[in-house]
Design a protein around this nucleic acid. Structure first.
Lengths: 230, 230
DNA sequence: AACTGATAATTCATCGATCATCAGTTGATT
DNA sequence: AATCAACTGATGATCGATGAATTATCAGTT
């Protein structure tokens, strides 16, 4: 339908196809709770909402299914993957396992380039968190992106593409719980990020793993305490 | 097209839809090397081979893509995920990480039911390995299934569905290397399995993890030594 | 009034058709 | 003769149509 890339002044700007665009939108709407957990996804409705044909829609949903954001019960269509407390706990443990491991390898192998990426990512995240703490709620989505980019940067030198892909996928599923149930409890998170940055520059993997453990479990404990998740 | 389930004498036998059937066949053909790494997958050709329509085919390929068995280069169709030595190493490390962790949790939580599953799975695997060592090469595919079922049984009590799904997915990708490059080096593998069984019954997770490490790395070292992988 | 069975309406799975895109080839121009 | 452009055949992406399955509705019966 469209070109794969579009040239402007020497810089290549990728132009997404109809399907890719819709894929991104639907994924975004699931992660951010516009499409709610457990909600059925009638094809005709989605068709008009996202402006793509049935077949393209089904391709997208089939792609989202192995990623764990959509479930397909054969012959009965699709629905947004339901949320549960046990699933949240499993995801948290999984993220911790994957990210801890990647963290250690990354700290081992990271060069100065990597340090640069980490510092830059942390700076952007910290700025956004300042704004959020100041009451500016407009940037919640931007905040999640910077949070991801920071954690991504931390593990980016682990040397394993497979590990990074896995981490990204689990992060998305985990993020959905944060977004759907509006989990953001401010200062503690900010401190954790700063401490993680320091660990990275000191190459103190053990301490970073401990911090990550607290960072993640602190987050889900808040959710489970408040009884937010069914 | 067909019923989701078919009742016979109280037991429910799932009847797969056209799409599900083709999905299983294509996945099988990729894992077992019928469709070779890097090979392009022209839709018209697959259409006639597997006897399904274009749209259904694309659904299947889109589902296989996040599973890591197929890659989709935008606007230029699909191809079987290529193989490389680095990818094999990454997968081995990943499988080790996931399975080691699941093993420890499973040993912790496993009950007598679990022990039964493990013993049964090992028995079937051992029988098949006997036949293979005796020169009966007809059962290579059955062997892989029993090997998976044994490892699956070992971790089945870990208590995390997310972890089990992840393990299954990575196992498939890892298995492909074994199948495509005909890696089976007999006695050592058989001994490993017996030792793993003993560890399970003794609940000795640390020893099991060591064994698993040797089991997996021994396997890929053979492949890398022989220069089988690109 | 509640249950069961048949029928109608909705939703899904699968398909081939159509249009856009890509790669290889030919031909014109310098 | 070499280079670039337009042409052409092949392949992929997107779409709506069609028949099958599921769910909802309603009448008839106990």
């Amino acid at each position: 339908m469209t070109d794969a890339a579009f040239e402007i002044g020497g810089e290549e700007i990728p132009v997404l196809s109809t399907g890719e665009q819709a894929y991104e939108r639907i994924k975004h709407d699931i992660v951010f709770g516009v499409l709610q957990p457990g909600q059925r996804l009638p094809l005709d409705r989605l068709k008009s909402v996202y402006g793509v044909g049935i077949s393209t829609l089904r391709e997208i949903l089939n792609r989202l299914a192995p990623e764990g954001l959509v479930v397909a019960e054969g012959q009965r269509g699709f629905q947004v993957a339901p949320c549960s407390a046990t699933d949240l706990k499993e995801l948290a443990d999984l993220r911790l396992l994957i990210e801890s491991n990647a963290l250690a390898q990354s700290f081992e192998a990271g060069d100065v380039e990597w340090e640069g990426r980490v510092v830059a990512a942390h700076h952007k995240l910290a700025r956004m968190e300042q704004r959020l703490l100041a009451g500016d709620e407009t940037g919640t989505q931007a905040w999640k992106r910077y949070d991801f980019e920071f954690h991504q940067a931390l593990v980016s030198a682990c040397g394993s593409k497979a590990l990074l892909d896995l981490h990204a996928g689990i992060y998305d599923r985990y993020l959905r719980y944060q977004m759907v149930f509006f989990i953001f409890w401010g200062p503690t998170s900010t401190e954790d990020h700063k401490a993680l940055l320091d660990c990275a520059l000191d190459r103190d993997a053990a301490k970073a793993q401990k911090l990550l453990h607290g960072h993640i479990h602190g987050c889900i404990d808040v959710a489970l305490e408040r009884g937010l998740v069914g």
